[in-house]
């Protein structure tokens, strides 16, 4: 709107010239002050290994906009081990169940596997064996557990056993259920109507049979092969 007259225009021109000279002076001042400096982060001499040659210690006097260097990432542990829980479980099973017999006994795809409704006998390290109807199989890797129910002195007793626990020496199938159970958890067997009661008699019969078979087996073997006597019994056990 204003500044159309000649005098005003010359004044603005002066302003511009002054501004330019000021800028030039400032720039000179700045360049004079900017000397390559090495930045020390520590009061004394730097600890060995800490003073790495880095971009910050380079000459910064004629810094220009340049492309930033992007460094490659270090090797990834995640790429090596995608499922750590499975890896940890596997390493544990190598120690606790080296033959994988225990795993096979409770694998769904195994036709001879123990199922709910079967009567199972758990032999423990401290000698307190427990037998009962299997009500539930809780499958979760190394924490896989079974729930057994029995009647001791006419009192219903239920026990959870971790199948891979070192305290469990062995798990045996005493009797299979005649028909496949149509439920995954047989909690209805706690009701008086469905409760099978004590399984002691069935277990005792099973153990007697087992002992007879074993003794017969050992006898026949002793009679047949006198040469291969050493280590035979140990490996049979």
């Amino acid at each position: 709107m204003a500044t159309s007259s000649k005098s005003m225009r010359s004044l603005s021109c002066w302003k511009q010239i002054l501004r330019q000279t000021r800028a030039v002076r400032q720039q000179q001042f700045r360049t004079l002050n900017t000397t390559p400096i090495s930045i020390s982060r520590f009061p004394g001499p730097p600890p060995p290994g800490l003073s790495r040659p880095r971009a910050s210690q380079q000459d910064v006097s004629n810094r220009q906009p340049k492309k930033m260097k992007v460094y490659p990432p270090p090797p990834s542990a995640r790429a090596v081990c995608k499922d750590p829980i499975a890896a940890v479980t596997e390493s544990q099973l190598g120690k606790l169940d080296p033959t994988r017999a225990r795993t096979r006994l409770f694998t769904r795809s195994n036709l001879d596997a123990a199922k709910v409704g079967d009567i199972l006998l758990v032999r423990t390290k401290n000698g307190d064996d427990f037998a009962g109807v299997c009500l539930n199989i809780r499958r979760s890797g190394i924490d896989t557990a079974i729930l057994l129910r029995n009647n001791l002195t006419r009192v219903g007793v239920e026990m959870w056993y971790k199948i891979y626990s070192p305290n469990v020496e062995g798990i045996e199938v005493v009797q299979r259920r005649e028909k496949r159970a149509r439920r995954a958890r047989l909690y209805y067997m706690r009701k008086p109507k469905h409760d099978v009661g004590s399984v002691e008699n069935i277990v005792r019969q099973y153990q007697r049979q087992r002992a007879m078979l074993r003794s017969a087996d050992v006898k026949s073997r002793d009679a047949n092969s006198t040469k291969k006597k050493n280590n035979k019994r140990g490996s049979n056990k």
Binding site: C81, I85, Q92
Partner: peptide
């Protein structure tokens, strides 16, 4: 998951952390 001590049979629940 859990870790078992094969000697004592002790079971220790544990958390798996990945660096």
């Amino acid at each position: 998951t859990a870790v078992y001590n094969p000697e004592s049979g002790e079971r220790i629940p544990c958390t798996v952390l990945q660096l």
